[in-house]
Simulated scan of single mutants.
Amino acid sequence: MVTLYDYGMVNHLPDGILMRALGQDEYYALLNNWAPESTDEQRSYKWTDANGVRVFQVLEEIVDRGLASDGFAGLTDDTIARSLFTSGRAAMYQTGSWGGSGQLEQDNFEVGYFYYPPINEESYGQVGSWLANCFVAFDRGNLEETKQVLAFIGSREGTKIYSEANTAPPGRSDIPTDELAEFLPAQIVQMVKDADSAGAPPLFESAVPPDLLNLFKRVVGEVLNDLATPEEAAQQMQDAWEEARQG
């Protein structure tokens, strides 16, 4: 398997594993119990619990079983990763929902998609999603006009235009899929239907503070490169979560 290291190997791959190794309550607890205002019930779930350690065990197994390409840790370019796959030098290329918009058509590949399988009976979630991003605009003396532009971008019609322009799932859930089918590829429309039926919990990488996300990425990298055991990785995460609670 090849993928962009910083974006796929230590972000998207662990995102998928987290939802499939943890139960729903456990998943949301670890998204939130780093905060000083988190509850005692949320704090009862720990990275060092069996399912938390299991996240890192799966990553370790991926490398131990030879599923990651040799030298994957230095692979930082998506174009290189994709070319290794299209040239037959890699068996799998990991990408995201945008891959359903014809990304590999120029290489004459028929592209489909599947979701990571569950790891245990308590696995939570199938379709992960980014939390809504905010719009940022600088006040240059046209505040009311700026508000009107931002209101349109976030509106139903503005969202449709944006979705059509970048061939990606829309950031709103109130646009019928038959309307989306008028301008989005069939696979992207099906992904929207999947999210409608299965739900779309927030991805870990979109829900925790940047400093804790960067720590997680570093710890994942240590496990992938055999610099830390799953147990050591889980303990690092738990220590950081407890320190963050102190404010």
Rank of each mutant, 00 (worst) to 15 (best):
G171I: 01
R172C: 03
R172M: 14
R172S: 14
S173G: 15
D174S: 06
I175T: 03
P176C: 05
P176S: 04
P176E: 02
P176N: 02
T177Q: 03
T177N: 12
D178F: 15
E179Y: 09
E179V: 15
L180R: 06
L180F: 09
A181S: 14
A181I: 04
A181Y: 07
A181G: 12
A181H: 01
E182R: 10
E182K: 13
F183L: 09
F183K: 13
F183G: 05
L184A: 12
L184T: 03
P185I: 01
Q187I: 07
Q187V: 09
Q187E: 07
Q187P: 00
I188L: 09
I188M: 12
I188Y: 07
I188E: 10
Q190G: 14
Q190S: 13
Q190V: 00
M191S: 00
D194M: 02
D194E: 07
D194A: 13
A195Q: 02
D196Y: 00
S197Q: 14
A198D: 14
A198F: 11
A198K: 15
G199W: 08
G199F: 14
A200Y: 07
A200C: 02
A200H: 12
P201D: 08
P201S: 11
P202E: 06
P202H: 05
P202G: 01
P202T: 04
P202F: 08
L203K: 08
F204S: 14
F204Y: 15
E205F: 03
E205A: 08
S206E: 03
S206P: 00
A207I: 10
V208I: 15
P210L: 10
D211V: 01
D211Q: 04
L212I: 12
L212H: 02
L212K: 01
L213R: 12
L213Q: 03
L213M: 13
N214I: 01
N214H: 12
N214T: 10
L215W: 13
K217D: 09
K217R: 15
V219L: 02
V220P: 07
V220F: 12
V220M: 15
G221M: 13
G221Q: 11
G221N: 12
E222I: 00
V223F: 04
